[in-house]
Amino acid sequence: MPLSAQETEIKNPPVSRPPLDPHLKALENEAIHIFREVAAEFEKPVMLYSIGKDSSVLLHLARKAFFPGRVPFPLLHVDTTWKFQEMIAFRDEIAEKYDLDLVVHTNARGKAENITPFTHGSSFYTDVMKTEALRQALDAGGYDAAFGGARRDEEASRAKERIYSFRTPDHKWDPRNQRPELWNIYNGMIRQGESVRAFPLSNWTEVDIWRYIQAEDIPLVPLYYAAERPYVERDGMMILAEDPRLELKPGEEVRHGMIRFRTLGCFPLTGAIRSSATTLEEVIAELEIATVSERQGRAIDRDQSGSMEKKKREGYF
């Protein structure tokens, strides 16, 4: 929907922020460049929106890239139906607030067969409800480019990935044969059915993400901040105990404590950390002295070395 003349008139924003430091500014510029390049070169881009902190930064950058226009592509959320409840509420609020086209997809087969993280194990569950679901949604939408918020510092196989990461028609990644990617000249030429995953946040670290959220005042799901919450200890993780579908095993009990999350995924597979950081400043202060990586709280990354690469080859983000 085209905006009226009045709406497109540029005004100074009511709050003026101090300028970004040169490091964050360079990262922001690079991400905006990638957004615009993909939007210009591909017929039908989509942005994967997982509601987490990286997605929140990604969305903020997309809005900046296309301002004063709308974000010119839809957001896709692959809903496994096992997300934290607060995430879903936050998602819908953001879509409304920023006038976004939101596409939500759930793997109907997996749902019909009642494939859950509790009954089928994290690895099979992830294959069906995340990877297969994603492939279904991308095929259904006919998208030829998909933005993701993955960062190279997250994991060793991600560290190898191009900014434009080529995918075959069946969404496969061939890490041994990636296209060269020189300077910031991206090769967006593909055949019918092939696609590209584009990663504007490739060169961001976890600390960069948090400092940018602070500098730009980006709203986040409250689960990132510490609060008194109910949890259950299972498999060396603290799992949030708010969803009625979580059944306690013998010997387990619901406890309460100050906890928060460093990453957000499906609640049964995401471990909390003990923390007293209730504000952004405190979260950053904690992060700067953290001795474990953020993926440590994620069951699906811990299965084995190389498990992320395997999932990615099959189409996972």
Binding site: M237, G271, E288
Partner: peptide
């Protein structure tokens, strides 16, 4: 042992870098 229950974030003796 990093995979211990409810990993708490502990400070290193000397942080490698002050991001700020």
């Amino acid at each position: 042992g990093a995979a211990s229950t409810g990993a708490t974030i502990l400070p290193f003796a000397e942080p490698a870098a002050k991001a700020g």
